[in-house]
Design a protein around this nucleic acid. Sequence first.
DNA 1: CTACCTTTGAAGATT
DNA 2: AATCTTCAAAGGTAG
Length: 394
Amino acid sequence: MPQMNSAGEDDLGASDEMISFKDEGDQEEKIRESAFTERDLADLKSSLVNESEVSSHPRVPESHPEAMRRTQDAQLVYQDKLTDHMEDGVKHQDEGMYKGSGYPSYPFLMLSDPYLSNGSVSALSSKVPVVQPSHGVHPLIPYNNESFSHGSHSTHLPADLNQKQGVHRPAQTADIPTFYPLPSGGVGQISPSVGWQSQPVYPIPSCGFRQPYSATLSSGPSYSRFPHPLMLSPSMHTTGIPHPAIIPHSGNKDIDCYERNMKPHSEPKREREPKKPTIKKPLNAFMLYMKEMRAKVIAECTLKESAAINQILGRRWHALSREEQSKYYELARKERQLHMQLYPGWSARDNYGKRKRRTREKHQDSSSGGKRSAFGTYKEKDDVAAQFLPMEVL
DNA sequence: CTACCTTTGAAGATT
DNA sequence: AATCTTCAAAGGTAG
């Protein structure tokens, strides 16, 4: 179990996180209290790209008090975790701040309360097409309608979420193989629950269940790109439901998804291309956050452009309290853990080059100055945005 | 049709 | 060891 050891610190985004908190600095606390939407909207409307705090306000070094505070707090949060990561990375997840909030390991048993709580979805109800949190909602994330984007507490969910099942239990070989096309060698290590747990995490883009964004998406059971294996037709899981991280590789990432499995009726002409599937990277904390919050932001801002949404999300991310962020870091840690278990031999490098990246050039251009700036061709826009920034953002 | 944009974080690659 | 690069999501946009 590589990297389990360092997961604790690592999860808190030690390096980058600390840096990123810098730009927010003192205002963070204030910002956190207030609603972002108005300002976000205003910002975005004045300029699509006015969030360039990063570019115009280079990230402050880690000496910043806020960063230090976060780090220290984070350490507190994970202090007991750190003690036993070697043994069991998630053993204590139902403790401390995670108590109750639990990460419903979506699996068999926990097809997530989120869904069940709604009353309309049963974990074993195969009539539900595909029950997965829409974008937005990561099954591992405490499914709280109020979310915790604005400082609201969300840490208390039905106690039933105790997720011992989500814990890695190396010994079980069980039936995983029947559910996931797992790489040889890794199968035997994965417990069914683990497999399920990770399942929803890897969304299935545009698989036909997508629904328009709406504010309700985040509260109701969102059906869309996250098919829960259990929800699929009985025949499917036995044929080896691909892990959501596995994307058939044929060029179009959106179309390819798992539609062959999920939408047998559609795309009749599409030939089955026996190309080896792509196992995608596990989502990091911020990605998980984005998935959960995107729909909400879109609903609030009536924006759909992801680039703009992501800017807002990026700012909100910084404004999150440490506890709130910690949840996502923890989720991300679990994701990585699960991913490792499911795909022992997988490496991020495997996907290198799958995107044709011209961005590389841009990064090289901009990398000379700041840490990260992908504006590239949008430089003009960025410059314009810079005019709004000083007062708007700060 | 497809890369890009935009965000943060993780991890691989490079220096 | 430090720095750089790539890729995760996502949906509008531009070429």
